[in-house]
Simulated assay, not measured.
Amino acid sequence: MTRSDQAAPLGGVSPATTRVMNLAHFLTQSARRFPNAIGFVWGEQQWTWSELEARVDAMADALVSRFGVRKGDRILVQSSNNNQMFESMFACFRIGAVWVPTNFRQSPDEVAFLAQASGARGMICHAAFPAHAEACQQAAQLDFVIAIGSADFGPDYDVIVEEHLGKRAESPPIFRDDPCWFFFTSGTTGRPKAAVLTHGQMAFVITNHLCDLMPGTGPSDASIVVAPLSHGAGVHQLVQVAHGVKTILPAAEKLDVAAIWQLVERWKVSNLFTVPTILKMLIEDPSVDRFDHSSLRYVIYAGAPMYRTDQKRALAKLGPVL
């Protein structure tokens, strides 16, 4: 951390004026250290760290120069897992905008409420959700919508990236308490509410994960995504980027247990983040015995307690990695 140009009170540095590293710089660091190493895999597609960095730079530049996004603006993202969603997180962080991912299974009206409640300025929406884009435009009077794929409601994300490749937006100063992510609750007991995650808070979470949850994690490792990037899995992948760990994203939108274990074997996956329900499905499927999963060192589950019987079964199948 370094001291900002603003005046600090006598006796120390004011927490509000203490500058921290922009979370998007983790991607930049991995791109500089391991430019030609694979950083992200989605199905049969692969991107090196330098390619990811270039795509994030391009989208960040487009958000600023073409759509007028400024620090503090909220960008709603409605999409299932894909590389564009992953990139959009870092593009928002890079320019000081706030990433507002939805649960993509929510209805158009539910997502429209998130657009309104978050004060979203713009939206990145997968082409498969035109009704969601329309509902959000009506509810929040968005300035722009970008489509992931070809759609009538906005320009294509990948076309925009191609047009802005080689350009880089200037990152504004980022401070510890600047928001980076509105993490919405499920709304099971009322309307969803946004937990405001900040750059400083998430930098601490990343450090905590690397020191306490996954010590020794580094560029020779691989992490597989078995949950939506919009929530806990997105936090987990931030940690991977910080230490140059490649992310493996299954091609199927729905959970395909056999495909997960096949990818674990193929990429020698060393860690995954999940919830007890999914972990139970992973260890009870016969495919767990067909593929080599000896590369796993850390299987992290969260969100709910796990039944002791299921814990024992998981330990018996996977070893002491939970």
Rank of each mutant, 00 (worst) to 15 (best):
P172S: 02
R176K: 11
N81S: 06
F129M: 04
N271R: 11
A258F: 00
G190Q: 05
L76G: 11
S230I: 09
F34V: 01
S186Y: 10
E44P: 00
L27V: 02
I38L: 03
E51N: 08
T247V: 14
V111S: 02
M306W: 10
G11Q: 05
L322N: 06
L282W: 03
F175R: 04
V159P: 00
V13H: 03
V239C: 09
D221Q: 08
M306V: 14
P9N: 06
S30M: 12
A203I: 06
E162R: 13
M85K: 13
S50N: 09
N36V: 13
H209V: 15
Q46R: 15
E51C: 10
R33Y: 00
P9L: 11
M1E: 07
F40G: 02
W267P: 03
T48W: 00
R105S: 14
L296H: 01
Q46V: 15
R176W: 06
R168D: 07
R313G: 01
D256V: 11
A258S: 12
A62P: 13
V77K: 09
F182R: 03
P219Q: 03
G166D: 05
F182H: 14
R70D: 07
A127E: 12
P219W: 04
A54V: 06
T28G: 00
T102Q: 03
P130N: 07
F175N: 03
F67V: 13
S118V: 14
V264M: 07
S79T: 09
V13C: 07
G68P: 13
G96C: 11
P173Q: 01
R191D: 12
L238Q: 05
R32N: 12
Q137Y: 00
L52D: 01
Q262I: 10
R66S: 12
V225I: 15
Y157K: 01
I278M: 02
P130C: 07
L296K: 01
A316T: 05
T189G: 00
D256F: 06
R74W: 00
D177H: 15
M1C: 07
P276D: 09
D109P: 00
